[in-house]
Structure formats: structure tokens, C-alpha cells
Computed example of a mutant assay.
Amino acid sequence: MKRQIEYKFRVRELMARAGMRNSRDLVDPLRDRGITLSESQIYRLVSQDPDRIAFQVLAALCDIFAVEASDMFTYTSVDVKTKRDRAAVGQGTDVPLLEAYRPVRARIRRPEDD
């Protein structure tokens, strides 16, 4: 069975706890730790859940907020039902294969040809 994983990046919440109101407030602390990102990149990092993140950026954010990496995001995983391909014929034991049946060619005759 497949599992679907959903996650929530909690940078906005950690910023609020630290008294940071704007994504620009992260520019200087990140630069102090050797991470140079543009304001738009930091805004996307704060406002959206990133698909991928550099380990250096994650470590810098953990250092800025004094939290562990597990505190930076929450996740849930759920079992997902997979759809089975529907087939007109079962496993082959219930009904013979349709390919085995061939139509009989029809012959049309005139009554006088009999």
C-alpha cells in the first residue's frame, strides 16, 4: 500500500516566537551564518512549504531559532488506496479469454441458389 506524506514547514511560526514580523528580518541572521539568499527567496521559504531545502539553510535556520531540525516542520503520513486496473475478464479461470472466441463469418445466400 502506498503512503502519502504531508508536511508543514514552521518557519513563520518560529519567526513569530522570535519577534520577527517580516521575512526581511531573516536576511541579516542568515548572512551572519554564511547564507546569502535574496529577499524573494527568503519570502518563498517563509510563505510556502519548500519542496527541497539545502542542508546548510536548514542548519542555519535551526541555529537562528535555537531549535532542532525536527522542530522546523511537522508531518503526517496516510495510507492511500491504489486503484486497481479493471479488466473485463477475471483471472482467466472464471470466464475463458475473449480472444478464444472468434465470430463466425456470415454467409448470405439467395433462396434460388439453394
Rank of each mutant, 00 (worst) to 15 (best):
F9E: 07
F73N: 00
L45D: 01
E39S: 05
D63Q: 12
L37W: 08
I53E: 02
E13G: 00
V80L: 11
Q4I: 09
Q41L: 03
D51A: 10
D28P: 09
K2I: 07
S70K: 10
L97P: 10
R105E: 07
A66L: 05
L61A: 02
R21Q: 04
D94R: 13
E112T: 15
Y101D: 09
A60N: 03
A88P: 07
P103W: 06
T93F: 10
D32Q: 13
Q4C: 02
R12L: 10
R3K: 11
P29D: 05
V57A: 00
D51W: 12
R21G: 06
K81G: 02
L37A: 06
A88M: 02
G19Y: 08
R84Q: 15
P103N: 07
S38T: 14
R3W: 11
K81M: 05
I53P: 08
C62V: 03
P50N: 05
R21C: 01
Q48Y: 12
Q41M: 04
D51E: 14
T74R: 12
M15I: 02
E112S: 14
Q56R: 15
A88S: 03
K83E: 14
R31Q: 13
G90Q: 08
S23E: 04
R21L: 03
A100C: 11
F55N: 13
T74V: 09
R86C: 06
E39K: 14
M20Y: 11
N22W: 06
R102Y: 06
D63Y: 09
D114R: 14
Q91S: 12
A106E: 05
Q91M: 09
Y7S: 14
V80A: 11
Y75W: 15
I64Y: 04
R10W: 05
M15A: 01
R110N: 09
K2C: 03
I64S: 00
E39F: 01
P103F: 03
G92T: 10
Y75T: 02
T36P: 04
D49T: 15
K83N: 14
A88W: 04
P50L: 04
D28M: 06
A69W: 10
E99W: 13
V67Y: 00
Y101F: 14
F9D: 03
R10V: 01
D114I: 12
D114E: 12
R33W: 08
A69M: 11
V27F: 03
M1T: 13
L45N: 00
P50H: 04
Q56K: 15
R86Y: 09
R31Y: 09
K83T: 13
S38R: 12
T93C: 05
R44N: 07
K83G: 14
P103D: 06
T74C: 01
P50C: 05
I64D: 00
E6Y: 15
I35N: 05
K81E: 14
L26N: 00
L58W: 01
D51G: 10
G92Y: 15
T36S: 13
I42F: 03
S77E: 14
E99L: 10
A59C: 08
S70Y: 10
G19N: 07
V80I: 08
L97N: 12
G90D: 12
A88D: 04
